[in-house]
């Protein structure tokens, strides 16, 4: 019984992990169609913000929840102004440019802070389920994933800001003709996507070690989730994370992490073979 609860918790945690890794990318790639290969480095930047902030004595929660999204959001806006805005609609060019950006960020952070920086330990400690010990921070990640999805959904669904963003992504010229400043909306949307990525990077910093090259391990799952999810930001992220996270964890529990990782890839392959537009290309098509 305890073991079942543990497996369920771990599955939720794995789903939350994928939601965190991919929700910023779902906006930047899913909505805006910009392939951001530097996504992993945006996460890394969020992680470094938390580490550097906590080093100078700033409260870790403030650093994770406020500073990390702020820093990476502002950085994202800069990147959009300097690089991305020239490359809208040029998928392959944006891929190349952001790959360069990713190398630049890894090199830059290594130069500034070095390769070996003291991390922060995971706050909150553990709690027990029967004979098992679980990190309480897992619950924070699950809660954060739910809040991120809920707020993105609420903004897109119920606010005029969300409506404008969606209309610009659908048809920038028409939106412009109706008096919307599309350029600004693009910039702001990219900034929000970056900020979400920064928030995620901050939240995962206490779970993984933070090093300049950490993004390499994170970008794969993020892209697989977004592509499997398809065009809808919230539903796509949620359905793909839910499906892939569960498959990964169940197989990992049953057969070990090598097979878990392989199963995740095979599951994504099968889905994309059957549903080339991702899950939300066929199901939940009217959802956000």
């Amino acid at each position: 019984m305890d073991y079942t609860i543990i497996i369920a918790l771990e599955m939720l945690r794995a789903i939350a992990w994928l939601v965190l890794l991919s929700s910023g990318l779902a906006i930047i790639f899913g909505m805006m169609r910009v392939i951001n290969i530097a996504h992993g480095e945006f996460l890394m930047l969020g992680g470094y913000t938390v580490i550097m902030a906590s080093k100078i004595g700033i409260n870790i929660w403030f650093a994770m929840l406020v500073l990390a999204p702020l820093v990476v959001g502002v950085f994202g806006i800069l990147v959009e102004r300097l690089v991305i805005r020239w490359l809208y609609g040029r998928l392959l060019d944006s891929l190349l440019a952001t790959w360069g950006l990713s190398l630049l960020m890894i090199g830059g952070v290594t130069m500034l802070f070095g390769n070996t920086v003291e991390g922060v330990s995971t706050p909150l400690g553990g709690f027990s389920v029967g004979i098992y010990q679980v990190s309480a921070y897992n619950l924070v990640m699950i809660f954060a994933a739910i809040s991120i999805l809920l707020s993105v959904w609420a903004v897109l669904r119920y606010t005029s800001v969300g409506l404008i963003a969606r209309s610009v992504m659908q048809n920038p010229d028409m939106a412009q003709a109706l008096g919307v400043n599309s350029t600004f909306v693009y910039m702001a949307t990219f900034g929000v996507g970056s900020a979400l990525t920064g928030l995620a990077g901050g939240l995962i910093a206490p779970v993984t070690g933070v090093v300049p090259s950490m993004g390499i391990n994170l970008i794969g799952p993020a892209f697989i989730t977004v592509i499997t999810g398809g065009a809808s930001v919230v539903t796509g992220t949620l359905s793909a994370s839910g499906f892939l996270g569960s498959v990964d964890q169940l197989i990992t529990f049953g057969f070990g992490p090598v097979y878990g990782g392989a199963a995740l890839l095979i599951a994504a392959l099968i889905i994309l073979r059957i549903l080339p537009q991702g899950i939300t290309g066929r199901f939940f098509t009217k959802k956000l």
């Binding site: 497996i7 771990e10 993984t208 990992t252 070990g256």
Partner: peptide
């Protein structure tokens, strides 16, 4: 004996299995 590809960053399942 459990083996992990070098890109694995999540060890929750393993930590539970070790406890079991």
């Amino acid at each position: 004996t459990e083996f992990f590809p070098l890109d694995v960053t999540q060890f929750g399942a393993t930590i539970s299995k070790i406890q079991a």
